[in-house]
Design a protein around this nucleic acid. Structure first.
Lengths: 266, 266
DNA sequence: TATTATAATTTCACATTATGAAATAACATC
DNA sequence: GATGTTATTTCATAATGTGAAATTATAATA
């Protein structure tokens, strides 16, 4: 399709005639919750761009409000236009639109927060969240990225994705987030096998202490795990004896969404 | 600062060496709640780009997941990466961080939904929303754009911005959203004068029937209206007799945030 | 207050990269 | 099977994006 050099495939993909745009996007992607503010020099260094080039691209992004600057320090942050674009992206996301009613029902049934998440590299992205009876964190998490190996949704998505992708993720070291986070690749492999068998995944204090979640996969028309939904809450409420019941609810909701996406089992 | 041609200033600003990036952003900005899906031809026509150019830029955006395609029709939509970037932009927004505690208190005090909004062209962008006692719409609105002339926040921001900007907005026809929407420039000018006097704005069914909101301006260190906060709810609860009390709360909260931004009156 | 170091802008010559007309391929629709 | 419509690909051309170097602004130190 495009004359892409072999070597480039593993680095950043590169399509002819799109260097500047690809670089501008790389700049945007450098911003994260962990590092939301960058100085020009640092950002240029981090992205491997020439300082002048980074400056020029950032100026273009700033003019369109995709980035803004700290008026005192001159440091760069993501701008309000991205909040607006993110809102449009979210509200027009077909997966989210289809899933929402089921997610609302699931949150009511379980009384806990229900979420919809998709795979993005080594993270899951929270596409939607519906609070349960006991509103705790609110929808603070929509648009957040969470590590695959420490979330129920991540493990489910991994379990039902290609072996190639699984191994790619297991190749990188698994960061511990709590003392219960699974960081042994072999242990995770065993767990993924069990998830494939049983059709759902559980995390108990692996992402943050005292937080329990149960997830099941959403399968699309092409028989791919397009997303995962979960129910999560404090371990005090989501006790061991309640888990089977919750798991059944989540699985049923996931199947319902899958069916709406055109998936037909068998 | 840059050799920008006079004529270009009123069209799309154009900085040398950033054409491709500016064009890619123009493509992204074409997507909206009203038209979230575009066919290549239509999008190229709407943005005034050559079809090939639009295709190439969109391919770059697609490779980075800023846009995605409808697998059946091939039509373009905004992609999940924008949801992630929007999330980072939102959570790292200084205005939002500073305002949140006050907004939470305001929602508790009033029992109604409280919002934080900023001006973006002819719209206000919802940066944050905290539900009141009676949760209705949930935080569906964060990242949404609403017309300036039909919102309390919009009117407040207009009232406290430059005359130049006000006149620019009044020059364009004001779309009616309900039968109560103010569409007469002269009427709006009088209202803005009253808002400057009293320090707060009200909308009663001008955005949607039965919805009432009260807003006050947040002033920053440079004595500019950087944002507006509001309290809103159904007209059945936000009755005429409650409004003065609500307005006082909103104004006090706005002053508190302004002070935290470094604004010192007098 | 001078001196030095560091980071942010601007300039500019150069060629790599983006451009768009035209051709081709892939779909729908009749 | 023909016809119109939309999506890709090709490719010659030069306009656009590039980055080294110079300049300016800002902070840190003596």
């Amino acid at each position: 399709m495009f004359p892409v050099k072999e070597a480039d495939l593993h680095a950043t993909e590169f399509y002819p005639g799109t260097q500047a745009v690809a670089r501008a996007i790389a700049l945007l992607k450098a911003f994260s919750d962990a590092q939301p503010e960058w100085t020009l020099n640092d950002l240029a260094r981090a992205t491997g761009l020439n300082k002048t080039t980074a400056f020029r691209l950032l100026s273009a992004l700033e003019a369109e409000h995709l980035v803004m600057r700290n008026p005192l320090s001159g440091a760069y942050r993501l701008g309000v236009e991205l909040i607006a674009l993110g809102g449009v992206a979210m509200r027009s996301n077909p997966l989210r639109t289809v899933s929402r009613p089921t997610l609302v029902t699931l949150a009511e049934q379980s009384g806990e927060a229900a979420t919809l998440e998709v795979l993005m590299d080594a993270h899951v992205l929270v596409l939607d969240e519906v609070a349960g009876d006991n509103p705790m964190g609110m929808t603070q998490d929509v648009g957040s990225r969470l590590p695959v190996h420490a979330t129920a949704t991540g493990k489910v998505l991994l379990a039902f994705s290609s072996e190639e992708q699984t191994e790619k993720l297991l190749a990188a070291p698994l960061q511990p987030l709590t003392e219960r986070t699974v960081t042994e690749p072999e242990q995770l492999r065993r767990e993924l096998a069990r998830i494939r068998q049983e059709g759902f995944a559980v995390t108990q204090g692996e992402l943050e202490p005292g937080f329990v979640a149960v997830a099941a996969p959403v399968i699309d028309r092409e028989r791919q795990a397009a997303a995962a939904i979960s129910v999560g809450g404090p371990s005090l409420r989501l006790t061991a004896e309640r888990l089977p019941q919750i798991a059944a609810m989540v699985q049923m909701a996931a199947r319902q969404i899958s069916r709406q996406l055109g998936y037909w089992p068998g």
